[in-house]
Simulated scan of single mutants.
Amino acid sequence: MTGDGDRGRTPDEQSEWERRRRRAEVFGDVLPETTSDERDDAAAPSRGSESATDRWLREQVPPHHGS
């Protein structure tokens, strides 16, 4: 899948886009460029639509810490 121009070149000799393309060929595009907290996908979830993980974390807060 790699082009003939990539053969024999060290990662230092390749440009950033070549390294990204090669990494995507090997590992796939598994990580987004930005994280969910950096994106404005939707407004913050309301209390009724919180995830199970968030709900579990809230339930683990000791009573003396308040809510």
Rank of each mutant, 00 (worst) to 15 (best):
S67K: 12
D37Y: 03
H65R: 13
G3P: 05
S36V: 11
V61E: 08
R58Q: 06
T2G: 14
A52F: 00
E38R: 04
W17L: 14
D41S: 12
S36I: 08
P62C: 03
P63Q: 10
V26Y: 05
G66L: 01
T34G: 03
A42S: 08
A24F: 06
S46F: 09
E25C: 11
E38S: 02
S15M: 14
W56M: 04
F27R: 06
E33P: 02
E33Q: 12
M1D: 15
S67E: 12
L31P: 00
A24I: 12
A43R: 10
E38N: 01
P32N: 01
D54R: 08
E13F: 06
G66P: 00
R47P: 10
D40E: 08
L31I: 11
T34N: 12
R7D: 13
G28N: 03
L31M: 13
S67T: 12
T53M: 03
E16M: 13
T34Y: 09
G5I: 09
G28Q: 02
D54Y: 01
S49P: 00
G28D: 02
R39Q: 05
P63V: 06
D37V: 05
T10Q: 13
A44R: 12
D41E: 13
G3Q: 14
R58N: 07
D54N: 07
P63W: 09
P63N: 03
M1C: 15
G8M: 13
V61L: 10
Q60T: 06
R7N: 15
R47Q: 13
Q14D: 08
E59H: 02
Q14S: 12
A43P: 11
H65A: 09
R19H: 00
Q60F: 01
D54G: 06
D6G: 07
D40C: 02
A24K: 14
D29E: 15
L57Y: 05
W17T: 14
R20S: 09
S67P: 05
R23M: 10
W17G: 09
A43V: 08
G8Y: 09
V30Q: 13
S67N: 13
P11F: 06
D40M: 02
A44V: 13
H65C: 10
S49V: 07
D6T: 14
Q60A: 08
G66M: 01
D41W: 08
S49A: 14
R20E: 12
E33W: 10
E13P: 04
P62L: 03
D37A: 04
A42E: 05
A42M: 03
G66Q: 01
E25L: 15
T35I: 03
R22S: 13
T53W: 00
G48P: 07
E50A: 07
R22G: 05
Q14Y: 02
S46C: 04
R9E: 08
R22A: 14
T34C: 06
G3Y: 11
G3D: 14
R55T: 11
V30R: 14
T35R: 06
R19Y: 00
S46P: 02
E50H: 03
T34S: 10
A44K: 09
L57D: 06
A44F: 04
G28I: 02
H65D: 10
F27H: 09
E13Q: 15
E13K: 13
S36G: 04
R9V: 13
R9N: 12
S46T: 14
G66T: 00
S67M: 11
R22L: 15
S51T: 04
T53C: 01
A52W: 01
V61S: 04
Q60H: 07
